[in-house]
Design a protein around this nucleic acid. Sequence first.
DNA 1: ACCTGAACACCGTTCAAGT
DNA 2: ACCTGAACACCGTTCAAGT
Lengths: 245, 245
Amino acid sequence: MTTDAPTAKRRAGRPKQNVLSPRLIHETALRLIDEHGVDGAGMRAIAKELGVRPSSLYNHVAGQAALVAGVRDLVSERIPTEPFTRLPWDAALEQWALGYRLAFASHPPTIALLAVQPLDPDSATSLMYDAVAAALVRAGWPEERALSVIVALECFILGAALDLAADQTMLDPGPRTDVPGFSGVYRARASALAATGVSPADDAFEIGLRSMLIGLRAEFAALPSGGVARETTPGATTAGEKIAG
Amino acid sequence: MTTDAPTAKRRAGRPKQNVLSPRLIHETALRLIDEHGVDGAGMRAIAKELGVRPSSLYNHVAGQAALVAGVRDLVSERIPTEPFTRLPWDAALEQWALGYRLAFASHPPTIALLAVQPLDPDSATSLMYDAVAAALVRAGWPEERALSVIVALECFILGAALDLAADQTMLDPGPRTDVPGFSGVYRARASALAATGVSPADDAFEIGLRSMLIGLRAEFAALPSGGVARETTPGATTAGEKIAG
DNA sequence: ACCTGAACACCGTTCAAGT
DNA sequence: ACCTGAACACCGTTCAAGT
């Protein structure tokens, strides 16, 4: 329906030119997820979209699990790691977090899908971890702590991406009167954000990321290796200083 | 198979005594999720476990969406909020985070399921938000910022719960030699943690939670209302001080 | 090797028929 | 009101048969 050529009906038997490839299948899956949600991107729907029989897909992907692994790689490839080659570790982590969340935010329904699946060792995701890990160690983080720093930040990013994927009115307490504390802060935030145009999800992400980076800088400064903060961003907020609005 | 009484075969027609209830269905669903994962807890599996026909369930739950909402409420109810009634805001948030993660950690497969679904306004979850929100405002957080603080921390907690649900060897880069930075930090952490008995997920959660709380204390201290940190834990780490191992 | 076509073993959900 | 029993419209996956 949304594809290209007027697919003339195909007879059984191997076609002279391949009509499928793993890449094509993964990209179609991602597009269908974007358009119709995760439930609109099953094997049968993908086959239909490609003008092909469901069983044909199994010549290129092992099954549904392999399919979602491929889709995740597609999304992961778009997370830029080049900030780690030119910025101090904390500023690079911040850029990485923004890019990471954005990559998944572009495909909301994928998040829950991809976050749980075990990592395929031969994936683009491994290359991303390599770039981040190497940069942290270079900056002075102890080798045995770097990975937990990465995972901790990643936890926040994935949670924030989930929050972004959820309906923004998810937390609306409605006209209940038995939760005044909740209703109060909900309405206060709503009107404050309405004035600035910032979305609730962006607001929470911003304060969370800022807080975590402040904390990580403090942890870094407190390392046994001393205040040898070789590459921390000069003048960045590390403590209870006033934060620029 | 794992249930109680020797269910004698039932004839059609309304039984004198109800055999089902929403609560029973939700609890059975949660138990099946724990035992066989999310895929082993469909409508048909729940019915079978209860010795009943699938169609019977629809007399008590509207459908699958309503079912997972019920399961979420079951899990949410176990998150304690009483720390907010007796501790400073930052210490209470820390206890809340521990309890929150633990509640979901006890039922790993539920996490991805529950995090995306919109919140039912008439749910136990609303009561939890109410307790947290009221405590933050009481402590001196501006009403329009409290909710984003809660959501930011919640993002990290949910991400950490996802991480906990995932296979702990998920990140194992294996014997690859093209990602030395990644392999290095992975092995360094593995041997460091092997000595202490701490799990990778716990390690990341610990550093992330500590960092975020340090950051939030800094944000709090930097509020326009000044350093009126009425209830912050005395002597807690707020800046680049040495953190107790 | 790579497609079709038919089949298998599943789903969630609906609804009339019973009590 | 609340259960059974049968049916409907779906799934993912397998596999022989074609080229």
